[in-house]
């Protein structure tokens, strides 16, 4: 009994530390009072004023553009890369996997600064540099999601398709693709989440004119904390939560099957 209560309390503390800050943020985003310390009643006015704020809308559109372009391109490139790595012999495979893992492990700020240094040497910082930067950290996630699926596919099924007269492309589409599709999709979702909330790398590679939501929130906060930012952060959290739910729903559906 004591053990049970103890473990309950322990778990509660963990969840409290994890989610209380976000909960506070969400509550404050509905608070009809300028100060953080007083509850002034429920309101949606901060959300309304978000929609009227052009810089925020611009940043939102920019975020969507970068996230979707980067995720789609990364999914295509990453899937092709995974197929290539899968076909490699074990030694080359190990080297390639190591190389793709480096951007995952490297500190974001280091990646960001080094990319900035590289980009300013050749071009102006702007949309395209942010896009390239996002691609570099999105692609490994796609590869890591697609490779295990490829490992599960049977080499013989693909060969059987060729044997029955299919061109390599048709055999891939009919035989390999159905098997790796879930991996490609979850790789895409991972890329979206990564791109959506990236701050450090975007911050260093974005240049003057470009702002995504995360970099904009950062600049706004430096001027002073406005309740609109709570609302905006809540929306970002909401999107991430929805993506997470979609991913979990897909994997649990798969598990039942």
């Amino acid at each position: 009994m004591v053990k049970k209560i103890g473990s309950r309390i322990y778990l509660s503390i963990i969840f409290l530390f994890l989610y209380l800050p976000i909960l506070v943020l969400i509550v404050l985003s509905f608070n009809n009072s300028k100060t953080r310390v007083k509850w002034g009643g429920f309101t949606l006015k901060w959300y309304a004023s978000l929609l009227e704020n052009e810089t925020i809308i611009e940043a939102f559109v920019m975020t969507l553009q970068i996230t979707l372009t980067a995720s789609i391109l990364a999914t295509i490139i990453g899937t092709l890369a995974a197929i290539g790595i899968h076909a490699m012999k074990s030694k080359g495979k190990a080297i390639m996997l190591g190389a793709t893992n480096i951007p995952l492990l490297n500190a974001d700020i280091v990646t960001g600064i080094s990319m900035m240094l590289l980009f300013v040497r050749f071009t102006e910082l702007g949309f395209s540099t942010v896009l390239i930067a996002h691609l570099t950290f999105d692609i490994p996630y796609v590869i890591l999601n697609v490779l295990p699926k490829l490992n599960q596919t049977s080499k013989y099924a693909y060969e059987a398709a060729l044997d029955l007269g299919a061109t390599p492309l048709y055999a891939f589409y009919k035989i390999v693709w159905p098997d790796i599709r879930p991996g490609v999709f979850s790789g895409f979702l991972m890329a979206v989440t990564m791109s959506l909330d990236d701050f450090s790398i975007t911050y260093f590679t974005k240049g003057a004119g470009v702002n995504t939501l995360s970099t904009m929130i950062y600049t706004e906060l430096r001027k002073g904390i406005k309740p609109e930012m709570y609302a905006l952060s809540t929306i970002l959290f909401g999107i991430a939560l929805i993506l997470l739910l979609v991913m979990n729903y897909r994997s649990s559906k798969k598990a039942i099957n």
């Binding site: 013989y156 060729l162 044997d163 029955l164």
Partner: peptide, 20 residues
């Protein structure tokens, strides 16, 4: 000549049926 252009067919050891 690639496999898809050869006029012969193979029965594989592991059957290699298309499970989906």
């Amino acid at each position: 000549l690639p496999p898809n252009e050869r006029k012969l067919n193979t029965v594989f050891q592991k059957y290699a049926l298309f499970t989906h």
